[in-house]
Amino acid sequence: MGNRKFKIYRGDNTKGELVDYNCDVTEGMVVLDAMHRIQADDANDMACRWNCKAGKCGSCSVEINGRPKLACMTRMNEYSPDETIMITPLKSFPIIKDTVTDVSWNYKQNKRIKPFSPSQNKNNTEKGLVMQQVDVERTQHFRKCIECYLCQNVCHVIRDQGAQDKFVGPRFMIRLASLEMHPMDDADRIPAIKEDYGSGMCNITRCCTEVCPEDIQITDDGIIPLKERVVDRYFDPFMILFRKIFKK
């Protein structure tokens, strides 16, 4: 496949530039392989995050020619041979160095979420929880998330409005959805989803779903149902009446 041209962001949050590199590319190579080759030969101190190299850990999130992607799952042959490949850090997070960003904000959001609270009903048995496959499938679908934060990176509320203090972002909306839809979870997170986690901030542009490398239906299966639950609880007149009558 021959020698290819790259432009990679080098620098930190205060200053930096796109630096030109060349790299020989062989069959089957992914962008991360090229970054490693460049690192070993020409740029020993170039920072890049990675772990599994198989799309399972979500460490190597970068923007490639402006599109948020996992570098380990992006094949070089997706680009035409004369195209220069530009690799830049995730735009929504502060740059630590080169393509590595500070994603600690995401860890703080997770900590705000009330964890799994197992019900102590009759289905919590000595042999474990009794749940049917069909009832856990939605939760399992959300639990495929590898925390690459590509969805957080493209979320308009975070990327364009910078409203990190008002919305936990798509990753944690589906974390919440996975808990709320868990058949054996007892906690009620609906008030917090409305008030603290900012479900109303999302205006359903589906950008998060589009970039998800695990094909999780973040918007349709996760965020929208949560928004509906909030609406049912707080804005549905029939339900308000129902609750008043039955004191629920």
Partner: peptide, 11 residues
């Protein structure tokens, strides 16, 4: 290792 001590994979 070349470079500084900050996030330096070579080091």
């Amino acid at each position: 290792a070349n470079g500084s001590s900050q996030f330096n994979p070579g080091w």
